[in-house]
Design a protein around this nucleic acid. Structure first.
Lengths: 196, 196, 196, 196
DNA sequence: CTATAAGCGAGACGGTACGTCCCGTCTTAGA
DNA sequence: TCTAAGACGGGACGTACCGTCTCGCTTATAG
């Protein structure tokens, strides 16, 4: 993720950068997003506040970047031989990440900021949304090649059908985000796109 | 919605209550959730801050309650004669509400707080989720009576498929939440639950 | 002390009155003047706040009245036969009361209010100053009758010389208010007013 | 006066410091101690509240420091050639300061706080008591050198006799603090310490 | 012997000030 | 020249009291 609008990133002190990122992750782990302040991060990192504000516009961007690499850690696109299996695998892994990892916690805690800051929303999508959609898109295209997806199926719509329910359960928490649920989503989608 | 955890609501001054709720809605409309402070609300309402804190634990609860009645304003459950039409109607109305009304704006601005305060999440669901789900659930059951829904279809899962993509688009904003999209969701769901 | 400007004292509930006075003294003893609030007193006394405000204009007046009777508890005017002894006795008793009793503590804690509220200052003097001065005045007049006081001595000035240093030490606390100090004051005054 | 208990005073903004001190004096002059709030001072000074709380623990300390320099403005020790004249001069000047100047008003309005906060009482004495006593002490010693003070006279006791009545009248206000009164105190003390 | 007014408890109310926290910017001393 | 340290202006927060008010209930006189 690009540091928004910042000075020459080459001149940046690697040492401070690491310290900031690490402190951010530690503090988020310990006390969550809202309870963590820039002052705390600077103190923990042994860094001046200015050094933080030089590279990130505010806490949200910093937290996002701190977790971006883990979030991006490319979960390999599965290849089980069939669409249903592939979707099951990726649905399960995605909902696990969203529910049970630090990255997932950060993802939902940042959703509020994304409602309020349009530029941040872009960066947020880049980290948490775009890549995952691309993976599933690829997977669907591959399946279409194998004749498992009807020609008249809109892929973007299919992606919304795939990710929507998972995000919905995670954010609204009206019901638990289980592996069974992930599989059910995958199964339903595979069937819905299949040729009759 | 019950006033969370508060003293005897019978002794509450109706006059102040109305003034607070109204001021809250006005200010949210004028400047959005984050820019609105409890001090401002109190001043606008001509009320002591303590009177607000007596009845609501914080801004989020107050804002939620201020919009609860509009949110609850029961959109009549449509009856077009067929499941597809019913779903289309309700999907369109729901995504319109979420996208283009003050209540919808509040709904997404409060989602962040719901990630952080479990009790608030409960209240939030009560206002923005439960009733809508109930409406669609009823609609699906009715359709099942007419033979438009297969017996093996899980209704809760169907509800997640219906609402998930709409919330997803609204919160993540990777694509616009159009009437066409709403109809596409409705159509896809109607078809997916239909007997083969 | 008259309750300033208040309704018919005859209709006052003796029970509540006692409870208020007692609660006031207890709380002052436990936590001092500033930390004690009218709300606390009302709660402790099992009394409505209005009942307090009906009879006293504010905390200072209430506290003053609560301690007035002890303050007034007429320390008998000593009669040792000589002026020096009489002054010693009264100086010692006065500085002891001021330093080491609950009434003394209240007396100094109320001095601030007396700087700010003129009417209160009057009441304050009535309780803590006037009677004591009268006692010493009487004592000096008696001594004058015995020829122990020169005719040209101004009695009011003598009283200021007598009480001034004691109040001064108590309020400024640059040095402890000991019995020796009290005696030294008495001795010096006795000598200063004595015929040459 | 040391800034009580505060961070490195060297890093303090001289500009803000002056603005705070000046605003404090202005507001005290305009509306008195109790009516003046920290918020007002901060606003008038164009300063954040935190900047005040960083350097002073509360209003009392700030007000004290704001007036410390005037209070300390060394009134030159008079030298009229005789003890009586010197004491008259200093008594008159002191009681004038206490009665008729802004510093005097502050002095009595802070006396309440000094009854309640021991550390503050120390600072208070430093500003309002210690120097004045030192001046009169010096004056008495000088007079002793000239043979105007008996050897067996305790100087500290004499100081209490000198200042006590003046403070007493000022704080209790049972009688006005006139120049005549000041002179009478001076005369009486001069005579009392004189050799027989 | 009622009725009617007062006092009463409880506590909500409009208001003010408090002292803390955090934001994002600015200043400074030293490496 | 950059950086840690942290002071700065600003402003929201949530709490504590103030003194007034409203509400039913109790009580004690006055008709």
């Amino acid at each position: 993720m690009p540091p928004s609008a910042a000075p020459d990133t080459a001149r940046r002190s690697e040492r401070s950068y690491r310290a900031i990122i690490d402190a951010t992750k530690e503090l988020l782990d310990e006390q969550g997003y809202v309870a963590t302040s820039i002052d705390q991060i600077a103190r923990r990192a042994g860094v001046g506040k200015q050094t933080i504000y030089r590279w990130w516009p505010n806490k949200a961007y910093l937290v996002l970047e701190a977790h971006a690499e883990q979030a991006a850690e490319r979960n390999p696109i599965p290849d089980t031989g069939g669409l249903r299996g592939d979707l099951r695998a990726i649905a399960a892994s995605f909902s696990h990440n969203l529910s049970d990892t630090a990255v997932g916690r950060v993802c939902v805690q940042l959703i509020g900021e994304a409602q309020v800051d349009e530029a941040f929303a872009d960066a947020y999508r880049e980290v948490f949304v775009t890549q995952r959609r691309a993976a599933v898109r690829e997977l669907l295209e591959r399946a279409r090649g194998r004749g498992e997806v009807r020609d008249d199926v809109g892929v973007e719509l299919a992606l919304d059908f795939f990710f929507g329910p998972i995000w919905y359960r995670r954010l609204v928490r009206h019901a638990p985000l289980t592996r069974e649920f992930a599989h059910a989503i995958a199964d339903a989608l595979a069937e819905a796109v299949a040729p009759r």
